[in-house]
């Protein structure tokens, strides 16, 4: 039997209200993640990945941001309408997050130890000594050497890779059920990236924790994720398990992303890239948002917004009229 959903997002819509009106950054997004599963959310910069994760954490800066619709269910509890007090209890305790920039995500003026124990002291009834012990334990878990000494160091004394390990250890302090990792390896160099990804995979297995891995890098997805959701301009455009998406991508955007991965065996002069840029949120009022960049686009794509269509494999969905069999027959 399939495991229960740890976190389920249904029809999430998050907008920013600016002087130019409402800008929908996340527009009707659905996804879920089960216990012990790693879900990848993939897309280019500006497609709404980070806003989605901040919405789940209740950390959208408001104003100008606001969740205008949909549901975020954590073990069935709606977080969209939860009080700030309730959200604070969940943050760092049940749902933890790590960020893209390890260099700036740690407070420069407090020791590593202070920052690690803070989450634990906030959420659990423990004394300082117990909290420090737990911090050492988590630092060892994420593979940080000489953990006891590191506790009294300041962030500027650590390398980028070590800081990201500290961030991960910090997120694990309260044994969260869900870990959201927003581009955790983007700012690191390649060898460190590999280590961090391997670590995330190990932690997922060891702790049976659900992980949402937000990335623009399909290589990361291939390496660690079980399932993947592809986002484009605030919408989910394709969703399936990892093998399927690499073997049989359906949405032209996903195909484009896959084609953009350089292959060392191909001897080509220029690398492939999808022409154009991600449209500014809210700039496309009608039709499929990918249509202006899509080589398969036809009239209908510019008129109507496609829904998510089922593809032949189970649990494989894509938002493209090419998959609309009834439409073709009409």
């Amino acid at each position: 039997m399939l495991k229960e959903y740890e976190l389920q997002v249904k029809g999430l819509r998050t907008s920013f209200f600016t002087d130019d009106g409402e800008v929908p950054a996340v527009d009707d997004v659905d996804f879920y993640v089960r216990e012990g599963e790693i879900l990848g959310i993939v897309g280019e910069s500006g497609c709404g990945k980070s806003v989605t994760s901040l919405s789940v954490m209740g950390l959208i800066p408001k104003p100008p941001g606001k969740i205008v619709g949909g549901e975020i269910l954590f073990k069935g509890e709606d977080l969209v309408h939860a009080s700030e007090k309730r959200m604070r209890k969940l943050r760092g305790n049940d749902i933890a997050m790590i960020f893209q920039e390890p260099m700036t995500s740690l407070n420069p003026l407090f020791t590593i130890g202070d920052q690690l124990v803070e989450a634990l002291l906030t959420h659990k009834k423990v004394n300082k000594k117990q909290a420090r012990q737990k911090a050492v334990e988590k630092m060892k878990l994420v593979g940080l050497p000489r953990a006891e000494e590191l506790l009294d160091d300041y962030p500027h004394q650590l390398s980028g890779g070590m800081r990201q390990r500290v961030m991960i250890a910090m997120a694990l302090m309260c044994d969260p059920k869900v870990l959201i990792a927003d581009e955790p390896t983007t700012a690191l160099d390649v060898t460190i990236q590999k280590q961090i990804l391997k670590l995330m995979r190990e932690l997922n297995k060891k702790l049976n924790m659900a992980i949402i891995m937000i990335t623009h890098d399909l290589g990361v997805v291939a390496e660690v994720c079980d399932r993947v959701t592809v986002m484009y301009s605030g919408k989910v455009v394709e969703e399936s398990d990892v093998k399927t998406i690499f073997k049989n991508p359906q949405h032209p955007y996903t195909k484009g992303l896959l084609a953009s991965i350089p292959d060392i065996r191909d001897k080509v002069d220029t690398l492939y890239s999808i022409p154009g840029n991600v449209p500014k949120p809210g700039s496309i009022k009608r039709g499929c948002r990918f249509a202006p960049r899509c080589q398969f686009a036809f009239d209908r794509c510019f008129e109507e917004d496609p829904e998510l269509y089922e593809v032949s494999e189970p649990n494989h969905l894509a938002r493209c009229f090419l998959l609309d069999e009834e439409g073709e027959q009409q």
């Binding site: 604070r88 760092g92 960020f99 003026l109 803070e118 906030t122 959420h123």
Partner: peptide
């Protein structure tokens, strides 16, 4: 970013402001 990190840890607003930000 580190203020966002503090908030993501579930630290109270008052402490985020007077401890993490003010210093």
């Amino acid at each position: 970013d580190y203020i966002r990190t503090a908030r993501a840890k579930g630290v109270k607003g008052f402490i985020v402001v007077y401890k993490h930000s003010l210093r």
